[in-house]
């Protein structure tokens, strides 16, 4: 059964890259443009994994994960945070908010796929 991954990012380029890379690897990819949109989509249908940007309008990635973990449907879904910040403090914040993994931008398609396989299976 194919796994569905939600990419939450205000940048169409990143969404497109995620959709292309994971799509080629057999995942079904759905897209959301910010945290609010992501929350609506992640709670409206079952997703097997989420890749979210940190810095977004309306609702940032960390707030999105916090809100997601409050929702019954958002518990247990692996979430990878994308950020240009590689500091340990961000990882700490992400982990505490309930993130499952994180990835530092820039990354290439191979790296993205490796992380997706690692965290989503």
């Amino acid at each position: 059964m194919t796994k569905t991954v939600l990419t939450v990012d205000d940048s169409p380029s990143i969404r497109r890259m995620v959709a292309l890379t994971l799509g080629e690897a057999g995942y079904t990819v759905i897209e959301a443009v910010d945290g609010l949109d992501g929350l609506a989509k992640a709670t409206a249908q079952a997703v097997d994994g989420i890749i979210t940007d940190q810095n977004m309008p309306n609702m940032d990635g960390i707030s999105f994960i916090r809100a997601l973990r409050q929702h019954p449907k958002g518990q247990g879904v692996p979430v990878v945070v994308l950020s240009t910040d590689s500091s340990e403090s961000l990882k700490q914040v992400a982990r505490e908010a309930g993130a499952t993994g994180w990835m530092v931008k820039p990354f290439d398609q191979a790296k993205l796929l490796a992380v997706a396989r690692k965290v989503f299976g």
């Binding site: 994994g49 973990r69 518990q75 247990g76 879904v77 692996p78 979430v79 982990r95 309930g98 993130a99 499952t100 690692k118 965290v119 299976g121």
Partner: peptide, 14 residues
């Protein structure tokens, strides 16, 4: 761990 989507089976696979 399960609440944050960690999957021991994936770790075991790796």
């Amino acid at each position: 761990a399960f609440e944050t989507g960690q999957k021991p089976e994936l770790l075991i696979r790796e």
